[in-house]
Structure formats: structure tokens, C-alpha cells
């Protein structure tokens, strides 16, 4: 229903309908030009080009993606991080926990390409073994946020009404607490402080990360639910809920995928920040955040012990953000033909 705030002004049509408009005739002579037919051949109206290969939206996006250098680089780096996180022993034969104070702050030497920390641990090996915790936090936080925030946002957007109003206020409340601030409060609760693990960090980050995803999904669902094809399928007899699952959600996925990819990176940063503040992962878990935190005291004497894990962290995060950017461009409806 569109409501027009200001109705059209209709002028009193005195005589307008009595005058028969008969067209204008120029006093000048106007040449009647006809283009030669061979130069302007007439094509059949609206024919189907049967030569082109059929393409779904996803296959089109994939075609456009795989040609982008940004995508190739970031996808390669992310694959590498995943393999490292899954099989760290393939990349380093040095035990990251076998630290000898004799090696304290030693520089690089054969077998130890990046030198040693203050405690005499091998920096390279710690980076390799630290990937797992950082990556898992990012991955599981994103999964929880997408599932929970996505479901909440989709239901709120699709059904609207009081459900939407309540969920919107709930989202606002969580928004009023910045992620780090909220995480600090939760992480120092006795229940969390005494049982710190990868999971407490994941739960905390997810608790303050879901409203953003809910908002994005809600917006996308509201846009999709008004489409004619949803009305058409309802008119075909599809139930309201099935229409949500079959039509609305698949058409709302693009922004969710993009934001999820980028968020995965930012959650890794958030974990590192919490660890840096001493309230993230427990010290016995090897992670980039913990290593950076430990190295900060040595910044002036041995900056490399801080730089290397920071570099690993930054490149990983950058890969996810770049991947998200590339996917966004590929899925952009404006860039697609249609």
C-alpha cells in the first residue's frame, strides 16, 4: 500500500477534452529519410540466445570470482591457514612447548628461522601451533553468530509485528555495549574467569556479535519477502513458512555470506585483543594473541617476537576481509547482468 501524502493536482479540464489533438504540421519541408535495410537488419523480437551456456547466479558469481586476483590470493592464504591449523606437525618439527631458558631471546639459527622468545621458545613453531586456537575461535564464533543471529533476524524480518519489535529492542540493548567492553565484563565473571577455555571466548564473542548478523539478515529478508516471486509462490499454494525456506532465505544469503566472512577475521582480532588484555584464552593455550601479549614487554629489546605472530595474525585476518570483499563484488546484483 503506498500512501500518497500530496494528491495530484488536477487542473480544471476546461476544453482539454473537447480539443481533438491532431498533431503538429510543420511549415518547413521535412525530408522523409529511410535507412537502407541492409545496414539496419531487423531481428526477431525477443529471441532466446541458445548458444550461451546456462548459468545460475552462483555459477556466475564463481566465474567472476575465480578471475579476481584478490580472491585467488585470499583463498590460497585461507586454505594454507586451515591446513596449518589442522596439521601443524607437517610444518614444524620443533616442539613449541619445549622451551629452554638457554635460548632466551636468541636470534634466528638453523632450524629456528624466527628466533626465540624470552622464555626460549621457538617463535616459528609457536606461530604454527598457535594458528589452531585463533582459527577455531574465529570459525566457531562465526558459525554460532550466523546460525543464531541469522535465525533471529530472518524470523523478525519475515514475520514482523511484535516479534520484530521485541527482537529489534533486544538487538539495540546488545549494541549499546561495545564488543570489547561487553566481553571484558563477561570474561571476568567468576563462572568464566575460573573456567577459561576456547569455548568461553567463543561464547562471549558470539553473545555480543549476533545482533549485527541479525540486523543484516533482517534487512535482507525484508527486501526479499516483498518480491513478486514470493507472492507468486504463495498464490501457488506454498505455505508461509515454506516460502521463507524455499525462496526468501536463499535470496537473502549474499549479504550474510559477505558479513560472515569479514566477521570471521574480526573475531580473530577480538580474541587476540582479549588475550592481550589478559582475559582471553588461558595462557597455557598457544595462540597468536597470547604470544603477542607475552612479547609486549620485550618490544624494545626484541621486537621480532612480537612482529612475527602479529604478522601471521594480520595476514590471516586480511585474507578473510579480502575474501569477503571479493565475494561482495561478485554477488553484487548491480554488477550482474539482468
Amino acid at each position: 500500500m503506498s500512501e500518497n501524502p500530496t494528491p495530484e493536482i488536477i487542473e480544471p479540464s476546461d476544453g482539454a477534452r473537447n480539443t481533438r489533438r491532431t498533431g503538429k504540421v510543420s511549415s518547413r519541408t521535412i525530408e522523409h529519410y529511410v535507412a537502407p535495410l541492409e545496414e539496419t537488419p531487423l531481428l526477431a523480437v525477443d529471441f532466446v540466445d541458445e548458444t550461451a551456456e546456462p548459468q545460475s547466479m552462483w555459477s556466475q558469481a564463481w566465474r567472476s570470482l575465480r578471475k579476481r586476483p584478490l580472491f585467488i590470493i585470499s583463498a590460497f592464504l585461507i586454505l594454507l591457514v586451515i591446513v596449518v591449523a589442522a596439521f601443524p606437525q607437517l610444518f614444524s618439527h620443533v616442539d613449541p612447548t619445549a622451551c629452554r631458558l638457554d635460548d632466551s631471546s636468541e636470534t634466528a639459527r638453523a632450524g629456528h628461522p624466527l628466533g626465540f622468545t624470552l622464555q626460549g621458545c621457538d617463535v616459528y613453531s609457536r606461530i604454527i601451533y598457535g594458528a589452531r586456537a585463533s582459527f577455531l575461535v574465529g570459525l566457531f564464533t562465526t558459525i554460532i553468530v550466523v546460525v543464531f543471529g541469522g535465525v533471529v533476524g530472518a524470523l523478525a524480518g519475515y514475520y514482523g509485528g511484535w516479534l520484530d519489535a521485541v527482537l529489534a529492542r533486544l538487538g539495540d540493548i546488545f549494541f549499546a555495549l561495545p564488543l570489547i567492553l561487553g566481553a571484558i565484563i563477561v570474561m571476568q565473571l567468576p563462572a568464566f574467569r575460573d573456567n577459561r577455555s576456547v569455548w568461553t571466548v567463543i561464547i562471549t564473542l558470539a553473545a555480543f556479535g549476533w545482533p549485527q548478523m541479525a540486523r543484516i539478515t533482517r534487512g535482507a529478508v525484508i527486501e526479499a519477502r516483498g518480491a513478486d516471486f514470493v507472492t507468486a509462490s504463495r498464490a501457488l499454494g506454498l505455505s508461509k513458512f515454506r516460502a521463507l525456506v524455499n525462496h526468501v532465505i536463499p535470496n537473502s544469503l549474499s549479504p550474510v555470506i559477505v558479513i560472515a566472512t569479514i566477521s570471521l577475521g574480526t573475531y580473530i582480532v577480538a580474541e587476540a585483543t582479549l588475550s592481550f588484555l589478559g582475559i582471553g584464552l588461558p595462557p597455557e593455550i598457544m595462540s597468536w594473541g597470547n604470544d603477542i601479549s607475552n612479547a609486549q614487554t620485550q618490544l624494545r629489546n626484541n621486537p621480532e617476537t612480537l612482529m612475527w605472530p602479529a604478522l601471521a595474525l594480520s595476514i590471516t585476518v586480511l585474507s578473510f576481509i579480502m575474501l569477503g570483499d571479493a565475494v561482495r563484488d561478485a554477488l553484487d546484483p548491480k554488477a550482474r547482468k539482468g
Binding site: 489533438r21 498533431g23 503538429k24 504540421v25 510543420s26 518547413r28 521535412i30 525530408e31 522523409h32 529519410y33 529511410v34 535507412a35 545496414e39 539496419t40 531487423l42 531481428l43
Partner: peptide
């Protein structure tokens, strides 16, 4: 035809015909 003295017809980026409106 009603509003112009002259009409130019374009098709696929080319002018295919032009002339006095009513004549066209």
C-alpha cells in the same frame, strides 16, 4: 506523433527512419 512535427525512429543504436510525424 501527437506532440512533434518530426519523428526520428531509432532501433539498435541506429536511426532507421525520420520524417514528418504524421507521414511516418
Amino acid at each position: 506523433a501527437e506532440r512533434a512535427e518530426k519523428v526520428v525512429v531509432m532501433y539498435k543504436g541506429q536511426v532507421v527512419e525520420s520524417g514528418p510525424a504524421l507521414e511516418i
